[in-house]
Design a protein around this nucleic acid. Structure first.
Lengths: 242, 242
DNA sequence: AGGATTATTGTCAAGGTGACGATAATACGG
DNA sequence: CCGTATTATCGTCACCTTGACAATAATCCT
């Protein structure tokens, strides 16, 4: 049984998860509608308080599973940053450890109206102010998107948005959605296939889509083992935002 | 008066600071000798518990000032990551928000033997196991060094290790100390002076050292305003570790 | 079958990097 | 005072990567 040292100053500690995915060519974020105060009825990042005996990463994983109804949420989960504890919750000081999930577009279970349920929303709307997120969640989302954008430059994490196997075109679509830019398919193909320890040809090809069938790739073992490592070296350069 | 919401699970929250500097051509870290249990007598990162009414960044700043005896510690302070709360403190669950300070080599006040005082130690020794840091501080230090190394690749933060004004040679010495490599002085000079929004020539020159006097530079306004922004684009590439 | 669409392979010029020569300007030892 | 050691700065050159874009291949759709 985990003990809590007494006689030490103590704070409520929460975790929040910014779960990002690519849907219909644009970046989306998982949000829940709050059923209780504070911010009752407003949209917020999925999250909750850390319970005793778990590390913050485990708490983030647990909350994500609880609020999506998905037992083993796919994708890459990493810690983002810690916010607070001052002035971010009307109930008082609350520290929150934000996490970032980069995941393929998985279906969330839509619960009945009596349970808090999560759904995907375009990041552009969430940051546009039209959705009015609870707490400081808009700021956290903004940081998360920036982190995701810069991670794609040098790490193999774009693949976390795809399934186990994917085509170069799908991978490029991830970059275009996250960066909000267009990339030249030919130059992207050259960089993606030419980078050592990044992709592995499965030998199979995709089918059913429009156009010529594309070769299916998966992450190289090295890239899967260390998802944060800089394999794109020199990095893939992010073009002008327009 | 900041309130703490009741009826919420609660954790002791600490901050730790990995303060790095360059001394005698090698990377050093600020450590304190613990005067109380747990880990009494062992070396540890400066840090302490977050007190009510302050954000974690403020707490890190305050602890740093308290343990060094320096009122306004110079350099660049940023959040590193959050660790725990499970299994890192023998007293029980304690969450710690680690911070990273990149600073010029400032003198620490050496207090009497009855007060906890900080001093600089070579990172190589601290990570070599010879110093046996308290808690999970060796792991935190390892992460901090890796963060610092990668930040130098694309951000102007190397200048945080220097004073207000510095020569290209001093800046290069920072890179060599942090990365543990040698860099070609001519190519480094070309990259440093050729990168827009990075350095600003002060017009003055250094003197007194060996060799030809060097031009003194300072950080460009743009780089000082956003110390984390990627100005080195494409990044400065880190050579083989040996 | 013909057109549309996406994948892949190349070509080429421009820009950045790594390796290294050459010169400049100062401190120091004799 | 002079030659030497040391560090700063400027240049050169081959090589690599990128950005722009032509050309061909292999499917789907109508």
């Amino acid at each position: 049984m985990p003990s809590t040292p007494s006689r030490l100053p103590c704070l409520p500690v929460a975790v929040d998860v910014v779960a990002l995915t690519v849907r219909d060519g644009s970046l989306n974020v998982l949000l829940v509608t709050r059923l209780i105060d504070p911010f009752k009825g407003r949209l917020a990042l999925p999250g909750g308080f850390v319970t005793s005996g778990e590390d913050v990463g485990e708490a983030a994983s647990r909350e994500l599973a609880e609020e999506t109804g998905v037992e083993r949420v796919p994708g890459h989960l990493e810690q983002l940053a810690t916010y607070g504890p001052k002035g971010r919750d009307p109930r008082g000081d609350v520290l929150t450890v934000a996490h970032l999930l980069l995941a393929p577009d998985f279906p969330v279970l839509v619960a009945g109206s009596d349970a808090e349920h999560a759904d995907w929303f375009p990041v552009a709307e969430a940051l546009g102010g039209t959705l009015a997120l609870a707490f400081d969640h808009e700021r956290i989302l903004r940081d998360a998107v920036e982190r995701a954008r810069s991670k794609l430059e040098y790490s193999p994490l774009a693949a976390a948005f795809c399934g186990e196997e994917f085509t170069i075109g799908q991978l490029r679509a991830v970059y275009e959605a996250v960066w909000g830019t267009r990339l030249d398919p030919r130059n992207f193909h050259r960089k993606a296939t030419g980078t050592p320890d990044f992709l592995e040809d499965t030998g199979r090809v995709s089918s059913g889509d429009a156009g010529r069938p594309a070769a299916l790739f998966r992450l190289a073992d090295r890239a899967r083992a260390e998802p944060g490592r800089a394999v794109l070296n020199p990095p893939l350069m992010r073009p002008r935002p327009l």
